[in-house]
Simulated assay, not measured.
Amino acid sequence: MSIEFAKYHGLGNDFILIDNRSSSEPQVTPEQAIKLCDRHFGIGADGVIFALPGQDGTDYTMRIFNSDGSEPEMCGNGIRCLAGFIAQLEGNSGKLGGTVSSPQAFQESNKSFEYRIHTLAGVISPQILADGQVKVDMGEPKLLASEIPTTLGSPDRKVINEPIEVAGKSWLVTCVSMGNPHCITFVEDASAIALESIGPQFEHHKAFPQRTNTEFIQVVSRDRLKMRVWERGAGITLACGTGACAALVAGVLTDKCDRTATVELPGGNLQIEWGLDQKLYMTGPAERVFAGKIS
């Protein structure tokens, strides 16, 4: 059996996208996903994303396997890539009037398209804007320790500037769930952090029963943050959309930034807004790299 795929990336956070509309279960196993994500012996990616039939009135369902075979609740850069992939699929079927190879193709048509996507973190609504950027309503952050989940602090209270011992050092961390767990710490110089050694120690710390994503944030100004990330199940990545949202929330909670800011990532910039409706809005690119078939 052969499976068609498309490779997309959002600021260098890259994914293998598979048209899975014919089945409610992913066409490849977590073990096969590990092989496909291998950058030497496979296609190479941070994860495999499946576009499945919608549930409970949604247009599509998103499932994702990380490069280590684990399944996260959601992925911010991934859902932007999925929106571009869906646009391509629907464009090929004639619904949008022609083949759409990437969100940037919408720029000439001066149209925007929105999808309701069911995820393990709830319903997420990405919108492809007329300028080719993808804006995503990421929903409201969860802030109580029990919601993240973490054993830091009291279960029914927010985790803001709580101390934690990692790698022989005490860190002050703020924890946020964007449907997946995030541990944010503010540092003087994000580039000086030894992610490859410190990241895994945060991810597997006993304070996080479901492991955690970890963001190291350098405040450039109140409307600009510089971020490096260790992603749960994927390791060092060039960008993390849910992490950028969590970082902004942590910055507001600790009075280090405004409710709208640019988040600088190694792969590029994301625009993040924490609206007065308490929802997070993320805007950034999603680009198609190539397509092919796998056996």
Rank of each mutant, 00 (worst) to 15 (best):
V100R: 03
D189G: 14
V187H: 03
T212S: 02
R259H: 11
V134P: 14
C183E: 14
S93L: 07
L225T: 09
I272Q: 01
G235C: 05
G10Q: 06
A192F: 09
K256Q: 15
L270R: 05
A250F: 01
L172G: 15
L89E: 05
C245F: 01
I198D: 04
E73L: 06
S125G: 08
E90N: 14
Q104M: 10
N213F: 04
P163N: 12
V219Y: 00
I148R: 11
Y8I: 09
T58D: 07
A87G: 10
A250I: 06
F290G: 04
N110I: 12
G168I: 08
E203A: 10
R288P: 00
I43T: 10
G199A: 04
S102M: 07
N77P: 03
C257M: 10
S67E: 09
H182M: 10
K226C: 12
A130N: 14
P53G: 12
Q127R: 14
S112D: 02
R232P: 00
A261P: 02
D19W: 07
A105Q: 13
D131Q: 08
A105Y: 12
S109W: 05
N213E: 06
P141R: 03
F5N: 02
G235V: 05
D258L: 11
I86A: 05
A33K: 07
A6K: 09
I117Q: 01
F106M: 05
T29I: 12
R288Y: 09
F5Y: 13
L36Y: 03
